[in-house]
Design a protein around this nucleic acid. Structure first.
Length: 289
DNA sequence: CTCCAGGTTCCGG
DNA sequence: CCGGAACATGGA
């Protein structure tokens, strides 16, 4: 790929922004490295993006779309100041400084996390690309091949068998059922986005097959702009138990939920993602005594 | 081969 | 409310 293929680049001021962390922390799965940056789609909008010094370089004409997607308006200093002051979170913060929670398209994010159940990040990425290539719309631009995530309508029209062929396993029925409920109008993602109350939004999302509390919380955090939302997966549960509940037994899921909601505060989702990425990135490595 | 992965759903105490 | 088991697939 040449730079000419992605057109002229424009610099967006972006202090406290780390592109590698933001795209590599496991919140979004379809961006691929190209040139000195990444290419990917924001919905059906093609984009090349590159880290600059204190700025983000994006294809000309994509400034507004990119600014919103990469959440350049999130007040990171304020968010960091809101974090509880404890060693585990401080370590994660220094490791992840500049990582932002992006604003993903509603369906794309919800669907992706439906397919994420009991899957490693590498496999979630693979599934995302296969679904896009097979059932998504090809995006016209001069850069590398890009496909939009398949719409609810496109997925709803498939057979479960079509999805099983994409290595979705038992998640195929979930994704198909979710798409159909949305197409039928039984669940309205845009309406959920307008809900004031996070609990109400979560309950509505959980009406979709394949969406339980954890997947709903991921969608709320990564797409519905609910920065307090605190998804508890196997990694975070491990961190919580080992860091904040040492030696205590019989800590139920309800107890973990109650603790995390109270302890991590208004930007709990940011804290969660920093703890998550740090834990995953340092797994298996010896910690200096 | 065994174990585990950004879980959800269904079923018994 | 809580714990177990089933559910698919692939990487380590």
């Amino acid at each position: 790929m040449t730079t000419a293929a992605v057109g002229r680049l424009v610099a967006l001021p972006a202090t406290e922004f780390d592109l590698d962390l933001t795209l590599g922390c496991g919140q979004v799965f379809h961006w691929v490295r190209a040139e000195s940056g990444y290419v990917g789609a924001i919905g059906d909008w093609p984009l090349y993006v590159e880290q600059g010094a204190g700025e983000l370089l994006v294809s000309a004409g994509s400034e507004d779309t990119a600014s919103r997607y990469f959440a350049l308006d999130h007040p990171l200093p304020e968010i960091y100041a809101s974090f509880p002051d404890d060693p585990a979170l401080n370590t994660a913060l220094e490791f992840c400084r500049g990582m932002r929670i992006v604003r993903q398209p509603l369906w794309e994010c919800t669907a992706t996390f439906i397919t994420s159940a009991m899957k490693q990040v590498a496999h979630i990425t693979q599934i995302s690309h296969v679904l896009r290539r097979r059932f998504g719309r090809r995006i016209a631009w001069e850069g590398p091949e890009l496909y939009a995530y398949p719409t609810p309508e496109a997925v709803a029209a498939l057979r479960e068998e079509d999805l099983r062929e994409c290595a979705l396993g038992y998640r195929a029925a979930h994704l198909l059922g979710a798409a159909r409920k949305i197409v039928e109008g039984a669940v309205d993602l845009e309406a959920i986005a307008r809900m004031k109350d996070d609990d109400e939004a979560r309950a509505e999302l959980c009406k979709l097959p394949g969406v339980g509390v954890k997947v709903a919380n991921c969608a709320l955090l990564f797409a519905f702009e609910r920065l307090k939302s605190f998804p508890i997966d196997v990694w975070i549960e491990r961190v919580l138990r080992e860091t904040y509940f040492q030696k205590k037994r019989k800590i139920t899921a309800a107890r973990l939920k109650e603790f995390s909601a109270k302890y991590f505060g208004a930007y709990g989702g940011y804290a969660q993602q920093y703890l998550f990425h740090h834990a995953r990135s340092t797994k298996g490595r010896k910690t200096r005594a």
